[in-house]
Design a protein around this nucleic acid. Structure first.
Lengths: 118, 118
DNA sequence: TGGTTAATTATCTAGATGGTTAAATAAAGC
DNA sequence: GCTTTATTTAACCATCTAGATAATTAACCA
């Protein structure tokens, strides 16, 4: 990554389907590295790297039970991302409202045309 | 990028502070390439590349007025991202609730202790 | 102690990314 | 037509990334 502020790190970590799939799995509860690797066609070391990326981004944390290193989803960076998105949410809601208004006008115009046609 | 599904493309495009700053600028209205480049210390071609990334991700669209190519924010990919985030929102809200409950218990315990101390 | 299981580190490779400068395209204005 | 302004394309470079295989660390089990 080039800009390594926290939000960039979060987004870069999420910009990989394997990593998002790992998070989706972890959203159902803790799992070990092998459990997480199971659904994928890639090597264990590759998974290990993905986990390191997720951990550095704060999206997961890891315990230590005997030889297992159970992973857990951490939601903090997601909340930060949600906060960033919120600013744009206003915009798309505004745009949706304007679209609605426009469609309503179309609807009205059509009804008037229908009235004339009758 | 490696996984080039739409969501990965959106996230990868957003994972760069320069590109997010461009979007922030566009959230205030359309702008030309030179206007967008102005606040940054990087070359025009670099900006041009960033815009191409944003365009491919569907985060901006571009008009064509004489020699200017005005850029406009497109919110669709952000809404998709918001939809993806929504699944995790449930989780962090749950966790927050549980934390609240825990803190409430602590509070109660403390009050009991205070009562005993009196 | 030696073997098995879990996970990480080391080393390497191919391809993407973000930046550069120099050259090309496109339209406007004299 | 020639110059200026806006923007993109070309060619290049350094660094990062996602993957691989082989070797290593760590802990349990008998």
């Amino acid at each position: 990554m080039h800009g390594s502020d926290p939000l960039s790190e979060t987004l870069a970590a999420l910009a990989d389907p394997t990593r998002r799939a790992i998070l989706a799995r972890l959203s159902k509860g803790e799992a070990t590295v092998n459990e997480l690797a199971e659904p994928f066609d890639i090597s264990l070391p590759a998974i290990s790297k993905h986990l390191k990326v997720l951990e550095r981004a704060g999206l997961i944390s890891r315990g230590r039970t005997a030889q297992w290193r159970p992973c857990r989803l951490e939601t903090e960076p997601l909340r930060t991302l949600d906060g960033w998105l919120a600013e744009y949410r206003t915009i798309w809601e505004q745009r949706f409202d304007r679209l609605q208004t426009y469609l309503d006008h179309l609807q009205n115009d059509e009804e008037k045309t229908d009235d004339n046609a009758d």
